[in-house]
Write a protein that binds this DNA or RNA. Structure first.
Lengths: 110, 110
DNA sequence: CGTGTAAGGAATTCTGACACG
DNA sequence: CGTGTAAGGAATTCTGACACG
């Protein structure tokens, strides 16, 4: 419930040109990382990509890893692991909340 | 020093089309409010406007006032007043800091 | 005053491909 | 594998103007 939603952080609002300036990457690179499933911009109804600030942050991490000679396939694996971890965490949190809720209704708390 | 800098909030990153979607205003309206000096987008080297999330917030305030029948000249005056207030406030803060600093160096504090 | 619109041009973005290594 | 580039088209944005009220 406080996991994210920094409201603006995840809003897809900027065109690829802005992302180039912010990250120092070329359009080619940015589109390629999307092709390799490392980032997921939104599309307008007519096909133009829109990115969020968190996409920009991701791209900067990716750029660093690429400089270290890590391949896109590797980077994708790391992302998947991170995703798993987050799911586990949120599952755990959900369960804890469930426990608390049960205690609350039993009257043990409050 | 903690006055703003929500980092992303003031970064000029989005094109006018995105702003239209976010605010529900037309390009014409957005450009007109700029002409009336209510908002100040950045320009790319080739003349394209770039807006920040705070610009979007301003525009939504402006839109509300326009609906209430307030004229752009009035709205601009309100903005100027707000600006004055902020300057006063930051001047006051600066002075307080100066006082504290003086006390500190005199050795009265610490 | 505030906003819609047609006009014409300039800048942006898109895709698929060829190239190099 | 990762990235540059030329190619051609489509979508976006820009300005100045005319219109209406």
């Amino acid at each position: 419930m406080a996991s994210q939603d920094h409201s603006y952080l995840h809003k897809k609002v900027m065109p690829i040109g802005t992302v180039c300036e912010l990250t120092g990457l070329s359009e080619r690179q940015i589109r390629y990382y999307e092709e390799r499933k490392l980032i997921f911009p939104q599309r307008t109804d007519k096909g133009n990509r829109k990115y969020s600030f968190s996409d920009v942050e991701s791209l900067m991490e990716i750029a660093n890893k690429m400089e270290d000679g890590i391949q896109t396939a590797e980077i994708r694996k790391e992302l998947l692991k991170r995703k798993e971890k987050n799911s586990e965490e949120s599952l755990r949190n959900t369960m804890i909340k469930g426990q608390l809720n049960a205690q609350f209704h039993k009257g043990s708390i409050r």
